[in-house]
Nucleic acid binder design. Structure first.
Length: 193
DNA sequence: AGTATGATTGCCT
DNA sequence: GGCAATCATACTG
């Protein structure tokens, strides 16, 4: 089916894609791990980069679903999103945390820390650990260097949800999702997990 | 042109 | 808990 990669339907609304992605293994050049935390951003979402219309930075969000949207955060970090819904809709899912499983030594070297819980816990840390950079902006997620591997135990995954982090608008929207009980979140969820 | 604001992190007290 | 780093974008004039 068009738009479907691994077990993910990128044509679906962002909150659904954000939940489908939990448990999926994300690798960039063979380095990465299981996605344990995501956030959804929709086109008509005051907290989204796409809310104010197309710009040079968010152009990838207005492109086809199933591609990467890479942006610079606070002038320092490179953060990775997956574009979803129809082309031009400009919805996306921010990948916020991984449970590291592949390329631990590489990620430790890139991050400069040993603790596996500090390698990919947060969008900026994840970007550094996976060497996310602007060259990946707009690239398809179904082709190298990206790999998305289905979660073998997806039906058994238990998810938690809560408000998104670091935003000032639409703060009450519970569009942050995580794998219940994971020790690799960027921050705890308010009540569950 | 100038100013304010971030989908953050790490270091400081 | 506070705050600097650092820069693209948005908003003001």
């Amino acid at each position: 089916m068009g738009g479907r990669i691994a077990d993910i339907d990128f044509a679906a609304p962002a909150p659904e894609v954000a939940q489908q992605l939990i448990g999926v293994t994300l690798l960039v050049d063979g380095v990465g791990g299981r996605i344990v935390e995501t956030e959804a951003y929709d086109r008509d979402d005051p907290a989204s980069h796409a809310f104010s219309g197309p710009s040079r930075r968010n152009a990838a969000m207005f492109g086809p679903p199933g591609c990467a949207y890479v942006y610079r955060s606070y002038g320092i970090h490179w953060c990775l999103n997956f574009v979803c819904r129809a082309p031009g809709h400009a919805a996306g899912v921010l990948i916020r945390a991984l449970e590291p499983t592949e390329g631990l030594a590489t990620m430790r070297r890139r991050r400069g820390v040993e603790d596996p819980r500090l390698l990919c816990a947060g969008p900026g840390r994840l970007g550094q650990a996976l060497a996310i950079d602007p060259a990946l902006n707009g690239r398809a997620l179904y082709a190298p260097p990206f790999q998305l591997l289905p979660a073998p135990d997806a039906p058994r995954l238990v998810l938690v949800a809560g408000p998104r982090i670091g935003i000032s608008k639409a703060v009450e929207q519970p569009w942050r999702f995580g794998e219940a009980g994971s020790r690799y979140w960027s921050r705890p969820f308010p009540r569950g997990g």
